[in-house]
Simulated assay, not measured.
Amino acid sequence: MILITGATGTVGREVVRGIPDGLAVRIMARRPGRVTGAGAAETVRGDFTDPASLAGALRGVRAVFLVTLPGGGDDAGFLRAARSAGVRHVVKLSAAAAGDSGASDLITRWQRRNEELLRASGMEWTLLRPRAFMSNTLSWAGLIRERGVVRALYGRSVNACVDPRDVAGVAVRALTGGGHAGRTYTLTGPEALSAAGQTEQLGELLGRPLLFEELGPVRARAALGARYPAEIVEALLESAERGRAGAKAEAGDTVARLLGRPATTFWQWAGDHLDAFAGQ
């Protein structure tokens, strides 16, 4: 039995879709009614803060896809429950910044703490450290549809962003195949792109020019503050400064090596999701 957490999220839902037919899959969610596209998978209620629900969700499970509890909590309780249930292997979604000694923002510290807990858990582990998801650009869709405009911080900073489907593909390989225990995989796209470059590609695909407007730190802080708590806003701004200095530019070959095909380009990802940007 494979247990998948975070199945309503960007990567988790793709992991569910990618598990080969014939393997037993269970989805753990705080609100099972929100899970879609589960197919033949069993869906159960489970809450990181409720030990009884964890015990039930983990019963009979041998491998777990773990997405860290949102909001800065740690995975200690979940990992204890998993080990008690006899789980052998945990594949954790982390972040590329966790491997960057120059990164010290709050979100990165949370991820490092949970990586340490997993490594010390006594179970086999695999760490997935993706760069920013290409799907983050979906937050631009409304303004693109309404005004043909993209607004982002530091438009010329480049990031080797990755298709979440590629991250999920690696997760499925780690969950269902051998040779991944004790491995840490930094996952990137095939090239580093800036927000301005992504905007240009979207405009070409849409067949109409898009205007890019760069937000300075003051405007970016105000925009982010409408969506996130203050401590998260500061962490995101700190991360953006690292990107501005080139810390997120390196594109590796790990996705291609593990999946046996080239990593998805932003052009390909955007083409597959063009309806979101071109809606009526």
Rank of each mutant, 00 (worst) to 15 (best):
T126Y: 03
L69K: 11
R45N: 00
V64I: 13
G72M: 05
G39E: 11
H89C: 13
A81D: 15
K92S: 13
V61R: 04
G33F: 12
R113N: 12
D100G: 09
D74F: 12
W110I: 09
E42L: 14
S94H: 06
S53T: 13
G22H: 08
D75R: 07
A76S: 14
L58A: 04
L79M: 10
S84V: 04
L69R: 12
G56C: 02
Q111N: 11
T49E: 14
R129S: 01
V25Y: 05
A24L: 04
F133T: 02
T126I: 08
G37E: 05
R26D: 02
A98W: 15
V90G: 02
F48M: 14
G37M: 11
A97V: 11
L93Y: 08
R62V: 09
G102K: 11
A55M: 07
Q111R: 15
A38M: 05
R88V: 07
D50C: 14
A29R: 04
S104A: 12
V25M: 02
A85M: 13
R34W: 06
A81F: 14
L118Q: 04
P51I: 02
A41L: 10
T36D: 12
T137E: 12
P51E: 07
L54C: 05
A97C: 03
A38L: 01
A85H: 06
A41K: 05
R34P: 00
S101W: 06
L138R: 13
T137F: 11
E115I: 07
R109D: 09
L23G: 00
L117H: 10
A55N: 03
L118M: 03
R31S: 15
R83M: 10
T68E: 06
R112D: 03
A57E: 01
V90Y: 01
T108N: 14
M134I: 01
V91A: 09
A85Q: 06
P32L: 14
S121A: 14
A132L: 11
G33W: 09
L69C: 00
G39T: 07
E124Y: 01
G77S: 06
P20D: 06
V91P: 11
R119F: 03
P20S: 12
L58I: 02
P51Y: 08
L23S: 08
G22E: 09
P20L: 04
P130A: 12
A29W: 02
V67A: 08
A57V: 08
L66W: 06
V91L: 04
T36P: 03
L138V: 08
F48D: 02
G102A: 15
S101M: 08
V25F: 01
T137I: 00
G102F: 03
D21W: 00
L106Y: 13
D50Q: 11
L23C: 01
G99P: 15
A81R: 03
P51D: 03
G102C: 07
M28W: 09
L118R: 05
A132S: 13
M123R: 00
T126N: 10
S135D: 10
G39K: 02
A24K: 13
A95K: 01
T108A: 10
A103D: 13
R45L: 05
L127T: 09
V91Y: 07
G33I: 13
V25I: 03
P70A: 07
E115F: 11
R34K: 15
G99Q: 09
A52R: 10
G33T: 14
R129Q: 11
T126E: 02
